[in-house]
């Protein structure tokens, strides 16, 4: 079966005024809109890995790295450690940095709690390798069941220190989670991403019916002491087989 891989790097989407205009859109709409704009400008077709790049990011040229905070959220749906590593390594490369200050893992899966925990343990072990060599500073998980989080926390060598919850429910934080994060000095952060940031049918709508999303990351670069968002973009790694699987 012939297949090829596609790496899409949206570049700094803050420079796309079309995206800014629709401020109220959620991250799924934002992502799809962005992909449409970028793909429109790149009509590459062929075999092997194709790289599609959006606008080049020039916003950080004159900024000292120590004034920046890079936060990354990685969206994966398989416990395959290889994709996670691939995603992280690609991110370091694309952002031209040795360290990511904050990483949140969004692991979407329909597994039973026991399987979920063992998958997360696999993922976490891979993450710990990066923390040990100081490539990641703060790491955590998003939309995770409180009990599973507590179990993972107790099991982990290097503890997660972020939990991210969807902001629509944030003013009703599960009390157990609130208490646990407080006691263990874990940051309880909010996000507004939908459960599935790029649903399969929308992926197929853009990349064709044989497209399969291996991983997706979103990065945000903040100017630390000034409360300014200076760059934001997505990286997607898509596998396309010639036949529909």
């Amino acid at each position: 079966m012939l297949s090829h891989n596609l790496l899409v790097n949206t570049g700094n989407i803050l420079s796309l005024s079309e995206a800014r205009q629709k401020a109220s859109q959620n991250s799924t709409d934002e992502l799809i809109e962005t992909l449409k704009i970028i793909l429109n400008d790149n009509q590459n077709k062929g075999d092997g890995t194709i790289v599609i790049n959006g606008k080049e990011d020039t916003s950080l040229q004159d900024v000292d790295r120590k004034d920046l905070k890079i936060t990354v959220k990685v969206f994966i749906s398989s416990p395959d450690v290889h994709s996670l590593k691939e995603a992280l390594d690609q991110t370091f490369k694309t952002l031209n940095t040795n360290v990511i200050e904050s990483l949140v893992i969004a692991y979407k899966s329909d597994e039973e709690p026991e399987n979920m925990l063992s998958s997360l343990k696999k993922i976490w072990s891979a993450v710990e390798e990066y923390i040990k060599v100081d490539k990641l500073s703060s790491v955590g998980l998003s939309d995770i069941n409180t009990n599973i989080f507590i179990e993972l926390f107790q099991w982990a060598d290097i503890k997660p220190n972020i939990v991210q919850i969807n902001l629509t429910t944030c003013c009703a934080v599960p009390p157990a989670l609130q208490e646990f994060t407080k006691e263990n000095d874990i940051q309880l952060l909010t996000h507004s991403d939908s459960y599935e940031i790029l649903p399969q049918e929308m992926l197929e709508g853009i990349f064709g019916s044989t497209a399969h999303l291996r991983w997706l990351i979103r990065y945000q670069i903040h100017l630390k002491c000034r409360g300014i968002l200076s760059s934001k973009g997505y990286l997607l790694y898509i596998n396309k087989s010639s036949f529909k699987i």
Binding site: A23, S24, T71, I165, V173, Q187, T190, Q220, L229
Partner: peptide, 29 residues
């Protein structure tokens, strides 16, 4: 608050910014 399809509105822009800023739950509320 914005005008549909015509003007994004200052509050939706603030909310979009906040969604990009990793706000802690307390502050967000």
């Amino acid at each position: 608050n914005g005008k549909d399809g015509i003007f994004p509105g200052l509050v939706p822009l603030v909310n979009s910014y906040l969604a990009n800023m990793d706000v802690d739950a307390d502050t967000h509320c």
